[in-house]
Amino acid sequence: MSTAALASDMRTLKVKIKRYNPELDEAPHWEEYTTEADPLDRVLDVIQKVKWYQDETLALRRSCAHGVCGSDAMRINGVNALACKILVRNVKGDTLTLEPILGLPVIKDLIVDMKPFFDHYKSVMPFLINDEPAPTTERLQSPADRARFDETTKCILCACCTTACPPFWSDNKYVGPAAIVNAHRFIFDSRDRGAQERLDILNDAEGVWRCRTVFNCTSACPRDIKVTQAISEVKRALLGGSIEMDRDPLQIIEA
């Protein structure tokens, strides 16, 4: 392909960004930029182009830029996603609208204060609890036992799910989908012994019962975790008192 053909693929994008500088602004406001973008550019590339060549005051969080660290979660054209995982060719229309994720206090521009999010995360004790004497080797686990919670190990704590959740927008005391996903990761781990304590914490009006099965979390998750399903499994464990599965989890993964 010639350079000319490549150049013709370039698109002119109008980038609308919700800006807020706490030292200057009383309230957030929209600012517009125009930039050229390659269809294979990521949204993150477009934002950095704006920041590097047009307005260096634009503040955003990003680290690995490859969908692993989860620091560039934002609302892209009204939908929560990681800016490093959305390509320009998947942006509909000529306008790219960027906002900070909802439900958390904005520090500056696209950066939000993640403390409330991590406080909820910590409240479910997201670490292995096992007081039994440690074996001389590893705590062994069958592939099937490992598969039981495989889905929820994928979480990168980007907050896309929690800040896509309508109950969380209005009620920030709600523990949120991400915290429940991380509780699920340990509740259903055969090596863990803290399931009862975690379930007691989640059996609360502001725990799993604030979940309205809106499914926004599932569609927002950049790691494709079935978040609503994980929450439902916790609800069922609370009701039935069993954290076993009626089918072999390995077969579900293979299917």
Binding site: S142, A144, D145, A147, R148, S190, R193, A195, Q196, L199, A237, G241, S242, I243, E244, M245, D248, P249, L250
Partner: peptide, 8 residues
């Protein structure tokens, strides 16, 4: 799939 100690 064992699920040992999996009752709450």
């Amino acid at each position: 799939y064992s699920g040992i100690g999996r009752k709450v």
